[in-house]
Design a binder for these strands. Structure first.
Lengths: 210, 210
DNA sequence: ATGTAAATTGACCAGCTGGTCAATCATTGA
DNA sequence: TCAATGATTGACCAGCTGGTCAATTTACAT
């Protein structure tokens, strides 16, 4: 009854190596040979533990997300009030040790393949569902249910967008800036929800985007 | 004095073909042969008009962005008040004929290569600077200058995030939803700015994201 | 018409790709 | 001790890649 079988260790090493190569080379330049070298092994061993290239990178995406998820879960454990749960999700998603351009680059490369890889798409769906669920669970005590869902969608989009900025802009933003930006978004939307309108404004100032 | 030299026409065709292939195949699967076939030409002709593969896709990114930029510029031309200019930028970025998953997929693939292609990085910088400038120019009449910059950053990130959601989620969001989401963000932040604090809240509820 | 420059093709190449496979090497349980 | 199982390697392959190039066709100014 070994807690860590050798195969599990190797597989984890290879997943991490795959993600590391993705950071440097992008999806177009990430080859099995490079992953093997990164892990200090031969190409054959990679295909011994993973059925093919696609499967390897699917596991790399799972691995990377698991770390982010844990950052949120740990903070969520210490959260008591809805507000604290909200902050746990927000801060967890910008955990300074993860909120790094290189990690964003690798993540972007994986996201870019989502349309052509059903497994990757499924992982994305799960990630988003979990995030949405966490957020709505905290928000449902503060605003109406559908308003909560709408704000949650905004938060997830804003988080993704701030990550994107980190990866694409040379002088990327800091973890603190990002957290502050999301907190202000929430504060603004909550203020709006509290200030009268049962639902946030509809096309009052519309000039017709169809 | 021809308005459209043959070479310009070909180059435009090839840029569009490159972007179309990017939509289907992603950056990893986009080959010169496929681009040539998409354009109804031979591979040789692609390299006759573009020095190499990288240059081709750099021009593809410029081409795609130019269309989005024009959607904004046209709306901006009819805008009189700061509020209308704001809406012009927001609605332009979700122009229904462009706000499509396939376009997002191609765009994502290009963004994923930004870290390894200085020209792509430069284009991204220009795009973001233009967007930021447009937004701040409209916001500076409504709030303090640095608050305007901060809100503009939030808007750009939110727009990017909503695009990402469109591309990654099976049941993507609609153009109208996206516009509404950004409008509510702006309304919330403006309400916050007007309701007392000279600058949006700082770490009042912080639990320490370092 | 005719000569020149540009457009276009397809053959060609060396290098790399993901993936297979037979042959070793290491571990371990009995 | 020794068979058996799994780990690991490196040789090998067919197919595709970006890129070059000489040859041919087309367009056009004179």
């Amino acid at each position: 009854m070994k807690l860590t079988r050798l195969s599990d260790i190797r597989r984890k090493e290879l997943r991490k190596a795959a993600f590391a190569v993705l950071q440097r080379e992008g999806i177009a330049g990430a080859t099995l040979e490079k992953v093997a070298t990164e892990a200090g092994a031969s190409k054959g061993i990679v295909l011994h533990y993973f059925h093919n290239k696609q499967e390897l990178f699917e596991h790399a995406m799972r691995e990377a997300n698991a770390e982010l998820r844990d950052a949120v879960v740990i903070r969520l454990r210490h959260a008591r009030t809805p507000r604290e749960r909200l902050d746990a999700v927000i801060e967890g998603n910008f955990e300074p040790s993860f909120f790094r351009p290189l990690i964003c680059h690798a993540w972007l490369s994986l996201c870019a393949e989502v349309p052509r890889d059903d497994k990757l798409a499924r992982i994305q769906t799960v990630i988003h569902a979990r995030m949405s669920s966490n957020l709505v669970s905290a928000l449902k005590d503060m605003v109406a249910k559908d308003e909560a869902a709408d704000i949650a969608l905004g938060i997830t989009a804003l988080i993704d967008g701030l990550w994107l900025r980190l990866g694409l802009q040379k002088s990327g933003i800091s973890s603190e800036q990002a957290v502050l930006q999301v907190r202000n978004f929430v504060a603004g939307r909550l203020a709006l929800a509290a200030s009268g309108r049962p639902k946030a404004q509809r096309q009052l100032t519309s000039t017709g985007a169809s």
